[in-house]
Every structure is written in C-alpha cells, then in structure tokens.
C-alpha cells in the first residue's frame, strides 16, 4: 500500500497538474500496488510523515505565497521528510517555497522554508515561457515539458542581499543536484542550463503541468521507485504497453527536437 499526498490540489493546479496523480495512480494499480491518493488544502490537515510520496503543483504567484504561509507552520516536518528520504515531486513554482526567500515583483520579501540555499526573485514585466527539452539523470531519454514563470533562481549564500539576516541551516548549494539540464528552454537562472533541484528523493522542477504524463519513462522511474520503497515484498516491475502515452511523447519530442 502506497499513500500519496497531493498537497494544495485546489490552490496550486494551474496547468493540469492533477493529471500526474491520475496517471501515477493508474500505473501503480497496473503493477498490482494498492495506492491511496489523499488531497489536502492545508498541510495542517495531514501528517506529512504518513506518506510515501508528496506531490505539489504550480500556482499563480499570489497563490504560491498563500501555500508558503501555510507550509511555514509545518517547516520542521518538511525538513524531516526531505532528510529521511520521502519521495517528493514539486512542479512549477512550488519548489521555490523551499528556498531562503522569494522577493516578489513589488520587492516584498517572503521568507522561504529555508530547506535549500537558493533565493528567488520575481518580476512582473515579462512572462518567461517556453517549450523545454532536457537531459535528466533518472531517465535514458530526453525529457520534454514547458516552463511558465516570472522568476530567477540563484543558488548560494552570495546570492542573498548583503544585509540578509543569517537564517536557519539550509542544505548548501554544493549538496543540491539539478533536476535536469536543458537543451532547449530556460533553466533556474534563465542563463545556465541547470534546471530544478534534486536532493535525496526530492525532485523540484519548473517544468509545469502533467510532467509525468508527458514523459512515460519518468513515470516508470517513479513507479519503480515508489514500488521498491513500499511494503510490497519482492516487487518485480511488469512492463505494460501505454501506446497513447508513448505516441504523445514521441510526437512532442519530434516537434521540439
């Protein structure tokens, strides 16, 4: 039995993110793994440590701040989940909540959860959007997706304002891997190809929407990972044919390639 938490499904759901959970549930069921997906509007309504997988999707800049304020009350639990190796996936701007600070377009500083040593700066002049192809260590194929954001993410203490207060211990930039390396599209700082973050079993990426739907191999990777971490004894991955998923991926890759 795998318990999945889709947190802020009503607040952060801008680009069809729910489809990730729909397909993940189906694929786990196809492997004969029992799965339960719980949705929650507030982290206070659930015990985060009860779940084998936590998913959070993308929201508008305003809604992300609301989620952040809510998640602040569970900061220690999030840190515990990350360090103890809970599988987590945060898509779109939701992973920005894990950094030191988000400076919004009006210059207002919103304290992040300080799990990781990076800082986020938003602007309101230009929407940064575009198709993405990327190399991703977890899969032996090109990752496809879309970025839709207005922020720049800079890693390391140096990025903080000179007068920034010393903050709670965040995982240093040197310990954070990138989620993928973009070949086409925008990375974290909109210059270098490094995109997203990966640390233990947490993945954060600015790729929006149904990432798992668009990338069958990434979904396979996650299914295997979750199955192996579950209490299912002697799990053996059974390949299934999902022609529409594979064809849709092939078309997108061909169009973007």
């Amino acid at each position: 039995m795998i318990k999945i938490l889709h947190l802020y499904n009503n607040l952060l759901n801008l680009y069809g993110e729910y489809a990730n959970m729909v397909l993940l549930k189906k694929h786990l069921a196809d492997q004969n793994i029992k799965v339960e997906v719980i949705t929650a509007d507030s982290a206070a309504d659930v015990r985060l440590e009860d779940f084998q997988f936590i998913y959070i999707g993308a929201g508008t800049e305003r809604k992300q701040k609301l989620a952040l304020a809510d998640l602040q009350t569970r900061r220690d639990d999030i840190v515990h989940c990350i360090e103890s190796g809970t599988n987590m996936l945060l898509t779109g701007n939701s992973f920005e909540m894990l950094g030191r600070v988000i400076v919004d377009a009006d210059g207002v500083e919103h304290s992040g959860l300080c799990c990781f040593d990076f800082s986020v700066t938003e602007q309101s002049q230009k929407r940064l959007t575009g198709d993405v192809t990327a190399d991703c260590a977890m899969i032996p194929a090109t990752l496809v997706g879309f970025v839709n954001k207005c922020s720049t993410i800079i890693f390391g203490q140096d990025s903080a304002e000179p007068d920034a207060k010393p903050q709670a211990a965040a995982i240093p930039a040197s310990a954070i891997k990138s989620f993928c390396t973009v070949k086409r599209g925008l990375g974290n700082d909109n210059v270098a190809p490094d995109e997203g973050i990966r640390y233990k079993n947490l993945c954060g990426t600015h790729l929006t929407g149904p990432l798992l739907v668009k990338n069958p191999l990434l979904l396979d990777w996650l299914v295997k990972k979750l199955a192996e971490s579950s209490d299912t004894k002697g799990f053996v991955f059974t390949p299934h044919d999902y022609p529409n998923e594979n064809d849709a991926y092939a078309v997108t890759l061909q169009k973007l390639g």
Partner: peptide
C-alpha cells in the same frame, strides 16, 4: 509554436459521455 498540451486536461471531455454522441474522431498531430 508550442508543443504544450496540458490544457487538454483542463477540458471536460466527459461532457461527451452522452447517449446522443456516437463515434468520436480525434485528428491531427
């Protein structure tokens, strides 16, 4: 140009689950 299709998941295609509706053809790239 974009290859972005996440908006398909925002559409309530289940509206076509109606006895009036016969065959459903899906065409294009």
């Amino acid at each position: 140009f974009t290859g972005e299709t996440s908006w398909l998941w925002d559409i309530n295609f289940n509206l076509l689950n109606n006895p009036n509706i016969g065959e459903i053809y899906l065409c294009g790239t």
